[in-house]
Design a protein around this nucleic acid. Sequence first.
DNA 1: ACCCCGATCGTA
DNA 2: ACGATCGGGGTT
Length: 180
Amino acid sequence: MDKLKNILDRPFYERSTVIVAQELLGKILVFQHHQGIITETEAYVGLGDPACHAARGRTPRTDVMFGPAGFSYVYFIYGMYHCLNIVTEVEGQAAAVLIRGVQNIKDHSILLNGPGKLCRHYGITLQDNRRDVVNDVNFHVIDTGIDLTFESTPRIGISKGQDKLWRFIAKSQQITPVIE
DNA sequence: ACCCCGATCGTA
DNA sequence: ACGATCGGGGTT
């Protein structure tokens, strides 16, 4: 019950995508029975960001990014993998945070360092696209009150927008102590 | 209807 | 460094 109160709410997501991406580090991603500390994120910031799927406008796939913050954006990539984002910014402004990595809470040996690995292990698919992560008991992010320190780098796997340092990765030595 | 490319990952 | 593998989006 206290847990439910700590679910990150819409105002949290309805802010600058870069800030949300940074502050998601250290929070707990919950999907069904899975729980993991978010350790790596990337910001994709709408029409002005050539690396963002929504940069070329509203399409069936990117439509969810134009909607309210706090919804999941799951897409299928390379014919094999799914990637999980959470929509940010006010409605009408297309942007999202890609969840690139989590540290498993129960089993530290499970390293989910990559968006494809994360979705594969958690079982996140296109069926989980466009879900309201603010009001879903089985799919949300919990506020731990922890802000991890992080490093900023260019985003992975993109050719455009390399000038932006919008990949945020928690400094690794902090992660294990957080879990205990 | 067709074609090309991709917010990846595992292996070489 | 590269191949696997297929949906999306732009073009014909």
